[in-house]
């Protein structure tokens, strides 16, 4: 008994530490994922979806409009929600995203905005988030570099 008593302070420290750890790990307002998961998810553009793929998709989905304007006509309006990007992390909006059934399809007419938002949502632990590509595959170089075979770099600029 005496022995356990003298360990009180040690046990108290450990319990305090445990409480801190539990509080921290249940904090929703922190990024917890590893960066690697985001990078892996973007390989082969598997985190993007084209309009055609979306139309064929049998799983349920909902378009999240991140921009300030309305969705363009070619997107079904009944299957969409409008969450401007600056408010996307508000508690109510996050709840909407969390409770949405099916895939979240991010749409913005600014593709960079959609890509950055995708990283945030991915790192917050949202699964099944995709970026809608309205055009062709966006990460393809549309131009071909034409080398100038007569060109030589001058010595001094090397």
């Amino acid at each position: 008994m005496n022995q356990i008593k003298s360990l009180t302070i040690v046990v108290l420290i450990l319990v305090a530490l445990l409480i801190l750890v539990i509080v921290r790990s249940s904090d929703k307002n922190l990024f917890k994922k590893e960066v690697r998961t985001a990078i892996e998810a973007t390989q082969n553009n598997s985190n993007t979806i084209s309009l055609d793929q979306l139309k064929k998709q049998t799983r349920s989905w909902i378009v999240v409009n991140l921009g300030s304007e309305d969705l363009p006509d070619f997107l079904h309006s009944e299957n969409s929600i409008h969450l401007p990007v600056e408010n996307i992390l508000d508690q109510t909006n996050r709840k909407i995203l969390g409770e949405a059934k099916g895939d979240l399809i991010l749409y913005s007419n600014d593709e960079a905005m959609a890509a950055k938002t995708w990283v945030i949502l991915n790192q917050l632990g949202f699964e099944n988030v995709f970026i809608l590509n309205t055009g062709s595959n966006p990460e393809v170089l549309k131009y071909k570099f034409q080398p100038d075979t007569t060109a030589r770099l001058e010595q001094d600029s090397m």
Binding site: T42, E111, A112, A115, V119, I120, I131, P138, V140
Partner: peptide, 30 residues
């Protein structure tokens, strides 16, 4: 990158990691 997407991922990751001074060349190589 070739377009804006991959560079934007890189921007978000570098910024999220707390690195400063991150920019994206708008529109990429296209």
């Amino acid at each position: 990158g070739n377009d804006g997407q991959t560079a934007s991922y890189a921007w978000a990751i570098a910024t999220g990691l707390g690195y400063g001074n991150n920019f994206v060349m708008k529109g990429g190589l296209n």
